[in-house]
Design a protein around this nucleic acid. Structure first.
Lengths: 195, 195
DNA sequence: ATAAAATGTTAGTTATCAATAACATACATT
DNA sequence: AATGTATGTTATTGATAACTAACATTTTAT
């Protein structure tokens, strides 16, 4: 194994993720995964023992540690609009990489509640970062005095909305293009929070 | 039937909706629904023939026609903040009533794509209403000149985000209270769009 | 009180699907 | 050539769950 093509187990995991993010864990059958990955069902069981094992391996192989602090700290220029643009893009990029896991977390929130944490931890971490950022900006008089945590929540909520609605329904809900959406929401947000 | 208690079929549909909104259509069994509704499995089949029939009846009995225009037209006072507050509350109330259907639409988007339309139609309709409202406000110089449609999209996206994240994960994502969330997002939005 | 309608009980059918087992084949390494 | 590893094939098991049928019991209406 290891031509320029994917290895067998990678092909299985990729197919599994793709199917599960569309339909959820339970409705996807091993046979479907096998067909999509172009292997026999037996191969899947030999690699991952159980169906659940497939999901677990897929999650493990697709979990990334964000590390906002390192990335952001060096790029922050203490200009509200520029910084929020930066943050917005970073967040949406990260979420894009988490798309499959996030959608499975949605589908399986009743049966695998721990999955949600994997996704919400990122948002929570970033929310903390933005809250601290807002606090500093307010101290320096570069931003209106408001509740930083609430504002951070609203800002991320707007972005999350873009992410989840396109992930779930393509352009059914939000037809505006990503750049347009980010630009306008950051702008409105900034004008609204100017001191 | 028809004490002050629910009728048998209502109890079945209610239990079915409750379970399906948590777990999706396929994973919920007739037995689960029967137990939750305190009837035998046979009763369910006698009322609705098939499992799919249960869902269809539940959807039919829970679909509401919003009619934004009638409700809003008489309450609009052409003050950006007041009107948006009104609209925000109306939208979230409507979505609350659609919560079950919306969550099932999420779970079953692959198997029943038509379900999404039921929910997205409301948002689309309201988006159109708000766009027209913004246009008028801009003509009257009560609002900054921007792309009304994009702004309407962003405004509803923020609200939708609150709705969907609490519907999916309770306070896991958004911990801020509903009123607080609405008040702050409307305020920020308005300050940002003042002429 | 009695008939009719609604619901319960039980047993059974059928289909699907995860998982196992046993054997076959293809291919690479040494 | 011999061995090991990865994969394929086929048959089978066991569990689950939708759905049916036949008969019993309860509830409701007249």
């Amino acid at each position: 194994m290891s031509k320029n093509k994917l290895s067998t187990s990678d092909r299985i995991l990729q197919s599994a993720l793709q199917l599960m993010k569309e339909k959820g864990f339970q409705p996807v059958t091993i046979k479907e995964i096998a067909d999509a990955a172009n292997v026999s069902e037996m191969t899947i069981f030999r690699h991952f023992e159980t169906k659940k094992g497939v999901l677990e391996a897929a999650i493990e192989r697709n979990t990334v540690v964000p590390g906002f602090k390192q990335i952001l700290d060096k790029d922050i220029v203490w200009n509200l609009e520029k910084d929020l643009l930066q943050i917005a893009n970073l967040y949406l990029d990260l979420m894009k990489r988490y798309e499959s896991i996030c959608l499975i977390a949605v589908q399986e929130r009743a049966s695998m509640p721990e999955l949600v944490d994997l996704v919400s931890d990122n948002t929570e971490q970033l929310k903390g970062y933005i809250t601290a950022y807002f606090n500093t900006m307010q101290e320096e008089g570069k931003m209106k005095q408001t509740d930083s945590y609430t504002q951070a929540s609203i800002f991320l909520a707007t972005l999350f909305s873009y992410f989840i609605s396109t992930a779930l329904w393509k352009e059914k809900f939000i037809t505006v293009a990503k750049e347009e959406f980010i630009k306008n929401s950051v702008q409105t947000f900034c004008y609204g929070l100017q001191p």
